[in-house]
């Protein structure tokens, strides 16, 4: 039934139950740190803290996310924006531990890019996310470009190597 409905992202929690205002004590997933109060005041108007805690991105990625929210009406001042991006990219940047149980172990095939995949993709999410689906070369290229923007430490040549490796081992027919 839900597919009948579209909805405005910014107010989904409010519209769904009217209990959207999360207080600091309700946000155990948000560690202490500079900017936390602004995240609680601004972001948890609409989001539960799990929405941030389950994602890993660098400052570029979080700035992009916060920009998207500003474009749909989040009440953010320029100073808030810097504080929020700073907090999120520190608390939930690449290399910080994800909440919840560990991901399924994956034995990556040998290849030139195996070490690159381990050193980049695995910093932010489980390898089951890499190996879980067969994808087209175009899709792998698009995904790796995005991941680099979000913080995967891969230069242009390394990105090509990773795309070739993923296409070789996890290509859609």
């Amino acid at each position: 039934m839900h597919k009948l409905f579209a909805s405005a992202f910014v107010c989904i929690a409010m519209a769904a139950g009217g209990a959207a205002v999360a207080q600091p004590a309700d946000n155990p997933l948000l560690p202490e740190g500079p900017g936390r109060d602004r995240v609680v005041a601004v972001c948890t108007s609409c989001h539960v803290s799990r929405a941030f805690a389950q994602v890993r991105e660098n400052a570029n990625g979080w700035k992009n996310q916060v920009s998207e929210m500003i474009l749909i009406g989040a009440q953010v001042s320029p100073a808030d924006m810097d504080a929020i991006v700073g907090y999120l990219s520190t608390a939930f940047g690449p290399g910080t531990r994800l909440p919840g149980p560990p991901s399924q172990a994956v034995d990556l095939p040998d290849g030139a890019a195996k070490i690159l995949v381990l050193g980049s993709c695995a910093r932010c999410h489980g390898l089951d996310r890499v190996a879980g689906a067969k994808r087209s070369p175009r899709e792998w290229d698009h995904i790796v470009e995005r991941m680099a923007f979000y913080g995967a430490p891969l230069d242009e040549g390394q990105r090509k190597t990773v795309v070739a490796y993923l296409t070789e081992h996890y290509a859609a027919k």
Partner: peptide, 11 residues
């Protein structure tokens, strides 16, 4: 005009 309805008003 501040924008669309939200649960609280950080501004």
């Amino acid at each position: 005009f501040l924008g669309g309805l939200q649960a609280n008003t950080p501004a």
